[in-house]
Write a protein that binds this DNA or RNA. Structure first.
Lengths: 338, 338
DNA sequence: TTGAAAGCGCTAACAG
DNA sequence: CTGTTAGCGCTTTCAA
């Protein structure tokens, strides 16, 4: 593998000159040409490790998607984060940064070690944290104490003051409530995700506040696990009482489960009851009727997180919030008011 | 940030001794204790960049999921690769390796540059390639020429002799054909993915060979794009002729689209026609009726790829194939024979 | 405009 | 068992 020294020898100049030339610094034109020619001949590609050591930067960012031991399946079963990853990747790519990926779990001492190494082993210049659960502030706190640059996907004021991107779950909940009220729904139930999942909490808060304010009644509330099966059982337990006008499900998977249970009981969607999902995931379009849901724009979320992190790396310190706006996607799982 | 030298100073020994002690090499017990104590006090975490530079290894592997400019959506819209990524991550983690992620496109000169840098910039010790499309051999060829260690997710004998993990698409196709024949199906159609997608080709080859051998007839064949919409249109064009007994769809998304079209026409699944999907993706379980499909075990595929790569890094050279076995998941989108 | 030399943090070869 | 020394590949003063 050719090194800078090889190029220097071939071009008949010093390594310092090669470095200058290759990095576009002022060098006599002929010298520059000779250097480039030599580099080309040798198929020279700079050893990034060498560059890192001198520059002290790794030009990499780490995407950290936290997992809960209580709900190990959420990440694996809801592949939304793939889109987020793609969004991060696109921005990183454009800025010559590479992306590392990790998905540690909240429990045990391993986490502390992981974070401590993340912050100090110099493999990444900064991190994007997806806390998911309430205990996310532990993570942010540790990173903040270590003065390691990071952005977190969470609403403002959850624990540590830091840089965050708020995906707009509260607003999304409001959106759904307003939509249902507009449809004429009055008696409404919620099948939500885990009670300690940040997104679930926020969606519910926004939804319930807007619903009650608008004169609707919350007539049922069950927590599931963001999975199809849990949506099915949640719907089952909800159906023990009189069916509401509409059911807001914390994500599309649970909506799919709920619809499955209803169909098994001969209840028609949307004819007998309206179902609303959340996430605009793959399943939303696959269901029949297609699911009315909320799109959080996960790809754009990823790019926003990456953009935000890059600007923090440029100008460290402070705290900030960027608010993303979810969008309601009206499809066929709701009925217009009579 | 504490360095080795700081630890050495505090412990009153040389940096070499600290290095030995920290790496579990023979050192007098008291010395070792002193070193660990000093390291702990300083919150010392080894700078990986320094380690890399001396060892020449980065302890990272790069997961490369190739994209086609013709079908830019496949990766973004079928999130299966997320599970593969998780599988790679789990093995990497267990072996102290980290994972980088990239998703380059096949077109243009950028690809060559990307590969050339991948192979020479020393940021990754090896790569896992997911070629997806036929032109994948270009990529493997370049990497092989550069003598960069890699494993490719593809069947044996596709281009360059190398290390590959075969996900068993041919066998999966056979599985479906045998299943349908066993059900009594005779007139069968296929809605397949893009004609240049490796997985699609293999699934079809296995399927058609087994079907004809078993006395079935192939009465229709349309290529879609692995998306719901393309499944919908493919089904529409297929339905211009007499409906077959069964339709094998190249993936679950297209099966969802096909089912949607059929339902819109009042055709009942599985009563009037049997639909089989592929991938056992999230949508398979969400559909109603739940989709009979084939599971390729993407998580395990990821771990296998990583395991394979790690062993190549241990003992370079040669070529190998590891065959994975897909599994048919019988659910409710098929009818038992009368 | 260019070269010599130092140094980023670590490991390894060699002496002692 | 431990210290000295050299060196991994690069960038960056500092002189010339």
């Amino acid at each position: 593998m050719a090194t800078l020294r090889d190029v220097a020898n071939l071009a008949g100049v010093s390594t310092a000159t090669v470095s200058l030339a290759l990095n576009g610094r002022p060098v006599k034109a002929e010298t520059r040409d000779a250097v480039f020619e030599a580099a080309r001949k040798l198929n020279y590609v700079p050893n990034r490790i060498g560059q890192m050591l001198t520059s002290g930067r790794s030009n990499a960012i780490e995407l950290v998607i936290m997992n809960s031991p209580e709900h190990p399946d959420i990440v694996r079963q809801t592949s939304l984060y793939y889109y987020l990853l793609e969004g991060v990747l696109s921005v990183a790519d454009q800025n010559g940064m590479s992306v590392r990926f990790a998905a540690p779990s909240y429990d045990g001492p391993d986490l502390k070690r992981y974070l401590s190494e993340l912050a100090r082993d110099r493999l990444a210049d900064g991190a994007i944290i997806v806390p998911q659960f309430r205990y996310g502030d532990q993570v942010c706190q540790i990173l903040a104490d270590l003065k390691f640059p990071f952005v977190s996907l969470q609403p403002e004021g959850y624990g540590v003051a830091a840089h965050c991107v708020d995906m707009g779950n509260y607003e999304g909940g409001c959106l759904v409530a307003r939509f249902l009220l507009g449809l004429g729904a009055r008696r409404v139930a919620v099948i939500n995700g885990p009670a300690n999942h940040i997104d679930a909490i926020e969606r519910e808060r926004g939804f319930v506040a807007t619903l009650l304010e608008g004169g609707g009644d919350l007539v049922g509330l069950v927590n599931g696990a963001f999975t199809i099966e849990s949506g099915f059982s949640a719907m089952k337990s909800l159906a023990e009482r009189k069916l509401p006008d509409a059911i807001f499900c914390g994500n599309d998977y649970m909506a799919a489960g709920a619809m499955k249970y209803l169909r098994s009981q001969g209840v028609r969607v949307p004819h007998d009851v309206t179902i609303i999902g959340y996430d605009n995931s793959d399943v939303a379009k696959a269901l029949d009727p297609e699911l009315t849901t909320v799109d959080s724009h996960f790809f754009e979320l990823g790019s926003e997180l990456a953009t935000s992190l890059l600007s923090i790396l440029e100008a460290p310190g402070g705290a900030s919030v960027r608010n993303m706006t979810p969008k309601l996607i009206a499809r066929h799982s709701h009925l217009l008011s009579a």
